[in-house]
Design a binder for these strands. Structure first.
Length: 112
DNA sequence: AACCTGACTTCGG
DNA sequence: TCCGAAGCCAGGT
């Protein structure tokens, strides 16, 4: 997937990709960015989630940072996200991190 | 057009 | 492995 100079659908593709994350799996911001064609747009993924995760009914809780941690701050959604992930069978280690090697989504040959 | 904003990532120490 | 600084990018103002 190549990024066009004027890509009005960048955010739309990010949302579409996030919707593909399966139950019981997680994806990182950077991973989503790569899938939509720009591995350096991780901050944009965060922006999309921040601005429209609820409105578009995205499985926002399945997106975490590179270190396997929930990016939200306690009191800002952290607790809810952790609970939702645990409800999907995902476990956290003693330091609050998720084993990415075990739970990270493998999109295979995903076609958007 | 310039500047600000993020639920980030990478790099150097 | 932890921390802070720097890098990055598109959308919003």
């Amino acid at each position: 997937m190549t990024r066009r100079p004027k890509d009005h659908f960048f955010s739309t593709r990010i949302k579409s990709t996030i919707k593909h994350i399966p139950f019981g799996k997680v994806a990182t911001y950077g991973q989503i960015a790569s899938l939509v064609g720009n591995h350096r747009a991780s901050r944009q993924v965060a922006w999309v989630l921040h601005s429209s995760s609820h409105k578009d009914g995205l499985p926002w809780h399945r997106v975490i940072n590179r270190r396997g941690e929930i990016a939200l701050e306690p009191g800002e959604g952290f607790e809810e996200q952790k609970r939702m992930l645990e409800n999907e069978g995902i476990q956290f280690d003693s330091t609050g991190r998720i084993n990415l090697g075990l739970y990270m989504w493998d999109p295979g040959n995903l076609i958007l």
